[in-house]
Design a protein around this nucleic acid. Structure first.
Length: 775
RNA sequence: GAGCUUGUAGCUCAGUUGGUUAGAGCGCUUCGUUGACAUCGAAGAGGUCAGAGGUUCGAGUCCUCUCAAGCUCACCA
C-alpha cells in the first residue's frame, strides 16, 4: 500500500467494479442475496436534474445525501431502488436555446413548431449525457437501467392520460383570466414563477374631469371603464352610480363611478381608475360589478367612446371586441389600436409620450417622482410582467390540497427541515388554482383539439411554404391556404374562451380539420406526477414494489414548486401520498456565507474539487455537520480536512495490515482492553445507525469522524502498540468502520475492502453489497 | 402586514427524548515525531451557549418577552 491514498487513481475503477456486478439494480444477484425479506422496500426517486444543466454543488449535495441513504438501506437488507431521471425544464431550456439562436442572428418566430422542437431536442441530447456521466463520477449508486426522461414516449402518454382523467373528474377547467405574461419570453407564468421587486417610480395624478385619480400606469388609461371610490368617502359620495364625462387625451371619455371598499381612501386621492384587462385588482372588480358595467361597455357607453366609435366605423373592431372592455397592451408588450396614435409603441416608451401629451393638455395635476412600489418581474428574464387576459387551462387545487392536508393531519408524512412542515401546510391552505398552460414549444403539448369548422375564430400564426409568417383568423386564412399547409407550418393558436374542444391523444377524426392546441404543459405538471409515472413505466412490478417511496430528498427552495405538487398529484392518482418522509437540504454557500453565483466569481465546481481532493472528500465535506433545512458554508479548508480523513482511514488500514503480516504466526490472545473495545464499538454502530434511520445525516458523519479519528486511531491503535488491544480486535474495528463509513465515502472504503479481499481477511467480495454491522 | 428560521470558541458549524467537565474542523501557543499517517501526535489558550424572565432536582436544549440577522408570502391604484 502507498503511504498516501491516491483518490484519482482508484475511483473510476471502483465504480466499474460496482457496475460490473450490477450492484445498483435491486434485481441483480448480489442484491437479491443481500436482501432481507422481513424488511420493507426502500426507494428514492431522484429529483431529475434539468437535462441541459451541467453539474454544480447543488447536484453534488443531493446526490451525496441520497446516495448515503440508499447505500445504508441496501446494506441493511432493504429491497432498495434509487430511480434516476432528467427533466426537460420547458421554459428554462427554451430560454437558453433562444439565447443561442439570437447569437446566431435567428429568432424562434422563423420556425414552425416541429422544426423548433426538433432543434431543441438535438441541442438537449448533446448535453444530457453529461449530467449522467458526472453523477456517476460522484459515486451515485442509482439504477441507471431504470432512467426516465420527462419527454420519453411512455412518460408523455401517462401525462396525457392523467390530464384526460383530471378533465373527466372536473379537476381541470379552461378560464379566461388575467395571467402573468412575460412579453419577452412570450409565455404566461404561474403565480409562483414571478418576483416582486421594489422600484422607485412615479405616481401620476390624472385629472378625470371632476375627479382626480392616482396611477402608476398612465399608458393603460385607454382601457378604463370606471372609477372606484370607497363607499364611506364623503368627497365622492355624490358621484356614486353616476357616469362622469370629460375630454381625455383622445376625445370624449365616459366612466362610471362605483363604490367598493377595496379602495383605500388614504391612498392618493382616494379614487382609482378601473382598467379590467391590465390589473389583477381591477379584473376582480370587473367580475364583482359586471352586472353594472357589461351592457354599458357593450353599448359603447364607457371608456374612450369617440375613439371606439371611429374604430367601429372603420370596421377595425370585431363584434366580440366591441362587447368587452378595451385592451391597451398586446402580447408583444406594445400598445394596441385602442390607443390611437400610440399603437405599436412599447408600453414603457409609450408611457413617456402619453405623459408628455397629458401635460400639454393640462390633464396632469401633479407627479410624485419618489414613489416606491413593487413591480412584478419575470423570474427568468427580469422583464416587467404584463397582466393580460388569456384563456388557459387551470387545475382546481382545493380538492387536492384538502386531501393532502388530511393525510398530514393523520401523520402520514414527516418533514425534515427547519420549520418547512409549517410552511408546507400554510401553502396548502392558501394555494390558488394552478395555471398549467405555457406558450412555448419545448414541452408536452396539450392533447386538446379544435375543429376549425366549429371554431372559425381561432387566431393562428404559421409559416407558409415560402417561409413567410402569416397571422390571422382561421376562417379567413383557410380560404387562401390549404389546411395541410397551415397545420404543418403552425406556430401558435389562440382559441376564444367559448371554443369547442375535444381531449384526445391523437387527432379525433382524420376526415375533419382539427388543429391541436399549441400550448404545452407547465414543466411542473409533468414533474408533479414523477414518482407515480416513473415507477408505472418501468419494470412490471416496480409500482407495487416501491410505491409509495420512502424519502423525497430535495432542496428547500423547490418545496412548493415540486414537492407540494407531487403530494397533491400523487395522492390524487394513487390514493396514497407518494412518499412517507421529506428531507429538505439547504443551499451550499461559500466560506463567508455568501450565495454562490457566477457574477460573484465564488462558484465551486464539484468536479474540480473531486479531482483535487477526491470525490470522497467532496462528499464528506458537504454532509458533515449539515442540518436539514439549513444552509451550509464550505471552504477549501473543509475539503482538505476531509481529504485528510480519507488518508487517515487509509493509513489505519495500512498499519493494521502491516502488523498482521509481521506477526502472522502469533497466537490469538485476548488482551486487557478487548472487552471494553468491543462494547464501545457496538455503541458507535448503534449511534450511527440510529442517526441514519432518523435522517440525521450530518450528525452521523460527525459522530463517525470523531469516533474514528480520536477514539479508534488516537486511542485504540496507540494502545495496541502497548499491547493492550489485540490485532484481531483492531481488524474487527477496521471492518466495522469501513462499513459505517461506506455510505459517506464509498470509494476509499471499497478500495481498502478490495485489499482486504486480496489478503483473504474478509469473506464478502464487495463492501457495497456487504451487510451492515449488527446493532 | 403575516409567517418561518437562525443567534454556541477568532472563523465555519455540530450538539440525538432536558442529565457528568458544552464538541469538531480551520486558525492560535508550546512541545514532540527518522516504523501507520507531517495529509501526524501530545498538551494548552479561547465559550455568562444573543439578552431578560419562567418551568424543573437539573436548561445550550422546554415556555414567554426583548434585541439582532436571514428567508418567504401578501399588499402597494
Amino acid at each position: 500500500m502507498d503511504k498516501h491514498y491516491q483518490a484519482q487513481e482508484n475511483e473510476q475503477e471502483i465504480y466499474q467494479l460496482w457496475q460490473k456486478a450490477d450492484a445498483f439494480n435491486p434485481d441483480s444477484e448480489v442484491n437479491q442475496k443481500l436482501k432481507n425479506n422481513d424488511l420493507p422496500s426502500f426507494s428514492i426517486i431522484m429529483p431529475p436534474p434539468n437535462a441541459n444543466d451541467p453539474l454544480h454543488l447543488g447536484h453534488a449535495c443531493f446526490i451525496t445525501l441520497e446516495d448515503i441513504l440508499i447505500r445504508h438501506a441496501r446494506m441493511k437488507g432493504h429491497d432498495t431502488l434509487w430511480l434516476p431521471g432528467a427533466d426537460h425544464a420547458g421554459i428554462e431550456t427554451q430560454f437558453v436555446f433562444e439565447k443561442k439562436l439570437k447569437k446566431e442572428g435567428k429568432s424562434r418566430f422563423q420556425f414552425d413548431r416541429q422544426d423548433l422542437y426538433q432543434m431543441i431536442w438535438d441541442y438537449v441530447a448533446e448535453n444530457s449525457q453529461t449530467a449522467i456521466r458526472q453523477s456517476k463520477q460522484l459515486g451515485a449508486s442509482a439504477d441507471w437501467s431504470r432512467f426516465k426522461f420527462t419527454l420519453d414516449e411512455d412518460i408523455v402518454n401517462s401525462v396525457l392520460a392523467n390530464f384526460a382523467k383530471m378533465i373527466n373528474d372536473g379537476l381541470i377547467y379552461r378560464a379566461n383570466r388575467l395571467v402573468n405574461y412575460c412579453p419577452k419570453c412570450g409565455t404566461s407564468f404561474s403565480n409562483l414563477e414571478v418576483d416582486h421587486q421594489d422600484e422607485l417610480g412615479a405616481l401620476y395624478y390624472l385629472k378625470y374631469g371632476p375627479i382626480t385619480i392616482a396611477t402608476t400606469r398612465p399608458e393603460t388609461i385607454f382601457a378604463d371603464v370606471a372609477i372606484a371610490v370607497h363607499p364611506q368617502d364623503k368627497r365622492y359620495q355624490k358621484y356614486h352610480g353616476q357616469i362622469i364625462e370629460y375630454q381625455g387625451l383622445l376625445g370624449l371619455v365616459k366612466l362610471k363611478v362605483i363604490a367598493d371598499d377595496f379602495v383605500d381612501p388614504e391612498f392618493g386621492t382616494g379614487a382609482v381608475k378601473i382598467t379590467p384587462f391590465h390589473d389583477f385588482n381591477d379584473f376582480a372588480f370587473w367580475q364583482r360589478h359586471q352586472a353594472e358595467l357589461e351592457s354599458a361597455v357593450a353599448k359603447n357607453e364607457l371608456g374612450y367612446v369617440d375613439l371606439k366609435e371611429s374604430l367601429i366605423k372603420e370596421k377595425e373592431l370585431s363584434e366580440e371586441e366591441v362587447k368587452s372592455p378595451a385592451i391597451a397592451i398586446d402580447f408583444s408588450g406594445k400598445l394596441t389600436k385602442f390607443t390611437g396614435k400610440y399603437a405599436g409603441i412599447k408600453a414603457l416608451i409609450a408611457r413617456e409620450a402619453i405623459v408628455k401629451d397629458l401635460q400639454e393638455d393640462n390633464l396632469i395635476e401633479k407627479i410624485d417622482n419618489n414613489y416606491q412600489h413593487a413591480v412584478t418581474k419575470c423570474y427568468r428574464c427580469n422583464s416587467n410582467i404584463e397582466p393580460l387576459a388569456l384563456p388557459q387551462f387551470y387545475v382546481k387545487v382545493a380538492p387536492l390540497t384538502q386531501a393532502v392536508l388530511e393525510k398530514i393531519d393523520n401523520k402520514a408524512l414527516t418533514v425534515h427541515g427547519a420549520g418547512y412542515d409549517k410552511i408546507l401546510k400554510h401553502w396548502l391552505k392558501n394555494l390558488e388554482d394552478w395555471n398549467i398552460s405555457r406558450q412555448i414549444v419545448w414541452g408536452i403539448r396539450l392533447p386538446v383539439w379544435y375543429d376549425i369548422e366549429q371554431n372559425p375564430n381561432l387566431r393562428i400564426s404559421f409559416i407558409d411554404k415560402n417561409q413567410e409568417r402569416v397571422t390571422g383568423l382561421i376562417a379567413e386564412l383557410i380560404k387562401k391556404y390549404s389546411f395541410q399547409e397551415i397545420e404543418s407550418g403552425l406556430q401558435s393558436l389562440s382559441a376564444p374562451i367559448n371554443a369547442q374542444f375535444i381531449v384526445n391523444k391523437n387527432k379525433p377524426d382524420e376526415n375533419k380539420q382539427f388543429l391541436q392546441e399549441t400550448d404545452t404543459f407547465d414543466t411542473w405538471f409533468s414533474s408533479s406526477q414523477w414518482p407515480v409515472i416513473t415507477l408505472q413505466n418501468n419494470q412490471k412490478s416496480d409500482f407495487e414494489r416501491f410505491y409509495p417511496t420512502t424519502v423525497m430528498e430535495t432542496a428547500y427552495d423547490i418545496l412548493v414548486f415540486w414537492v407540494m405538487r407531487m403530494l397533491m398529484m400523487g395522492l390524487y392518482l394513487t390514493k396514497e401520498l407518494p412518499f412517507k418522509k421529506i428531507y429538505l437540504h439547504g443551499l451550499i454557500r461559500d466560506a463567508k456565507g455568501q450565495k454562490m453565483s457566477k457574477s460573484k466569481g465564488n462558484v465551486v465546481n464539484p468536479l474540480e474539487i473531486g479531482e483535487k481532493y477526491g470525490t470522497d472528500a467532496l462528499r464528506m465535506a458537504i454532509v458533515i455537520r449539515s442540518t436539514a433545512g439549513l444552509d451550509k458554508s464550505i471552504s477549501e479548508a473543509d475539503f482538505k480536512a476531509m481529504r485528510n480523513l480519507n488518508n487517515k482511514l487509509w493509513n489505519a488500514a495500512r498499519f493494521i495490515l502491516l502488523q498482521i503480516k509481521q506477526d502472522s504466526q502469533a497466537k490469538v490472545e485476548v488482551k486487557k482492553l478487548d472487552k471494553e473495545f468491543t462494547k464501545k464499538l457496538q455503541e458507535i454502530v448503534s449511534t450511527v445507525s440510529r442517526n441514519l434511520d432518523q435522517l440525521q445525516i450530518g450528525l452521523a458523519a460527525d459522530t463517525l469522524h470523531n469516533e474514528f479519528w480520536h477514539w479508534f486511531c488516537d486511542q485504540c491503535i496507540e494502545e495496541s502498540k502497548k499491547d493492550l488491544i489485540s490485532q484481531e480486535k483492531l481488524l474487527e474495528g477496521l471492518i466495522v468502520f469501513l462499513k459505517l463509513f461506506h455510505p459517506f465515502i464509498p470509494f476509499v472504503t471499497e478500495k481498502i475492502w478490495q485489499i482486504l479481499v486480496a489478503e483473504q481477511l474478509v469473506d464478502e467480495p464487495m463492501l457495497m453489497t456487504s451487510p451492515w454491522p449488527r446493532c
